[in-house]
Design a protein around this nucleic acid. Structure first.
Lengths: 333, 333
DNA sequence: TTGTAGGCGTTATCAT
DNA sequence: ATGATAACGCCTACAA
């Protein structure tokens, strides 16, 4: 079933069918009606490849992230997919796996499919060569990054100010008389760096305990977080609050702390379902994923539409604290 | 940069370039070498739309599910995407949101993009009209379903036998002298029905307590599960174990039970990260998602390759129990 | 308002 | 081994 078949059945030319299909050009109500009827009757769909060939677009957006199985990326992809679909845009999903500095090929998978734009969530790219590839690509199609910043003149960056978010948390903890705040983190991605800088800034400005042992880099697993907290307690390293770069770490830290009879405020990051599922429920830094994603999609639609109003090359949202039980515990002794 | 440009630079015809590009037909080593060199030098990529038009395929697979933000679907999509990419297939992701009986349109979004096959995870479709649409589509392109069964002659179904899984759990609990097993579930999807049937079968075969109050249908939220458990305890409804259709419900049930001083074995379903994050860690029924997904992808690749060996229309895996702390509690009094 | 014809970039079938 | 050329199905000037 092609446009020719429809045209024949309607006794019109393919141009007319194409016009009613795209609402372009004037077509008499009568013919339009008839064509529409036949199209529906025949359940005709224009061939997307042919259309893509002519228009040089199939209205598909590449979405790149490390792994959708991760709750944070999953939420982001979900939000983005929904928003894009409302704009009649499809999502081609591409997961790189761990960032090993050799992820440029995933970028190429997307460009080979001629997507109209690429949204990158987090930091799946980092090596010099990966970023060189990204830069090259960004001259051809719009690149929108969420919570990372590759400093490309041609890319659009949308971030949450997690640095100030963590700093605010440190302040609030200090108000509750916490002075030895343990910080657990896993990676130094863009987001990861911002957070630790926020932590350090908070510690410094309030002259809190800056013992090196209070800053611990560990793998992002329950086991690692449990072990380190237990170890610190065993080693008599004093701390009166815990902040983590990921909810997952906070879950495990809380578990280990409680198991060892240590009741301190614990605060995670990302405000994910994990924070809610932990008992007591975890207070968590909300990085405004909804806002980041809707802004990203809005940016995409602006960039790929001809009559686009200018869009900012960088957008920043403030982080918010989602308070739950684990912070109520700050009435500790 | 088109195939014409490459041909010109090489002083050959586009046919020759096409041949070296696809490894079809004989080309002298010399020309092949030169063409390859120019292709690399020019960073040339064949236009996927043009190729799609000719081949009637762009090697894209549609993946349909209710919501990737859900940990179960997220894991599934992640596994599928990885496996498909290894086969040089791309994923077009499509999330329907809650199953309201009007999700056929999402199926159409995918077919409009001319995907080579559709993998459906769970039960995003259910109404008569949705399934009619699915049936129609299934005559045109391969449909592979994971953990659901639409009984379409032309579709391929891959499921986990959760019925027997739950039944086994009931048996194990009975061995530990549990006789009043509370079952919390949310929806009666294909998977949901199988599970409750397994529960009922177990209760019946062992003549356990079948009080209606021990089977509770609730929304899939932490709050709902907490409330119902608290209410049952307040109402003096006796139970000595809890089984839930989802890990999320088990998390909340465990929280409510412990809060009310009730220590009973609790077992969830899906063996998700939530089960691990709960404290104590939850024993959970593992529905073999890895196997389901790899089988789905294998089925897809078989179906879309011309020289395909026959594939079974239905594949069944057995469920497994992932034992954790919440089952250790079965040494209760 | 409608029709004609050229172009989009491949692949594949013929010749040569 | 290589080249010319016809599809593939659509969009869109340009003509009528």
């Amino acid at each position: 079933m092609t446009i020719y078949d429809i045209a024949k059945k309607c006794n019109v030319s393919i141009a007319t069918v194409s016009r009613v299909l795209n609402g372009s050009g004037r077509v008499s109500a009568k013919t339009s009606e008839k064509v529409l009827a036949v199209i529906k009757e025949q359940d005709y769909n224009p061939n997307p490849f042919a259309r893509g060939l002519g228009l040089n677009s199939m209205k598909m957006i590449g979405v790149l992230c490390a792994d959708v199985a991760d709750t944070f990326y999953a939420k982001a992809v979900s939000l983005i997919e929904n928003a894009l679909r409302q704009k009649d845009l499809d999502v081609v999903l591409c997961c790189t796996g761990p960032n090993n500095g050799k992820n440029a090929k995933y970028l190429r998978y997307l460009t080979k499919k001629h997507v109209d734009a690429i949204i990158i969530i987090g930091t799946p790219l980092s090596s010099r060569s990966d970023i060189a590839e990204l830069k090259k690509i960004s001259s051809g199609i719009p690149i929108i990054t969420i919570n990372s910043d590759y400093h490309l003149p041609s890319a659009f960056s949308i971030v949450c100010d997690e640095r100030e978010g963590i700093r605010m948390i440190i302040r609030k903890l200090a108000e509750k008389n916490c002075r030895s705040i343990l910080y657990l983190y896993d990676t130094l991605t863009y987001s990861g760096r911002k957070k630790i800088v926020g932590y350090q800034a908070g510690i410094e400005e309030l002259s809190l305990d800056d013992t090196p042992a209070l800053t611990q880099k560990i793998p992002c697993t329950l086991e690692a977080a449990e072990n380190i907290v237990k170890k610190l307690i065993d080693d008599n390293v004093f701390f009166d609050a815990i902040v983590t770069s990921e909810d997952l770490l906070a879950v495990a830290a809380q578990r280990a702390a409680l198991k060892n009879g240590k009741v301190v405020p614990i605060i995670g990051c990302n405000n994910s379902i994990l924070a809610e599922c932990s008992t007591p429920a975890l207070t968590s830094l909300d990085n405004r994923l909804e806002n980041l994603c809707t802004t990203a999609v809005h940016t995409v639609t602006q960039l790929i539409s001809e009559k686009s109003s200018p869009v900012p090359s960088k957008t920043v949202f403030s982080a918010q604290l989602a308070e739950r039980e684990s912070f109520v515990f700050s009435d500790k002794k």
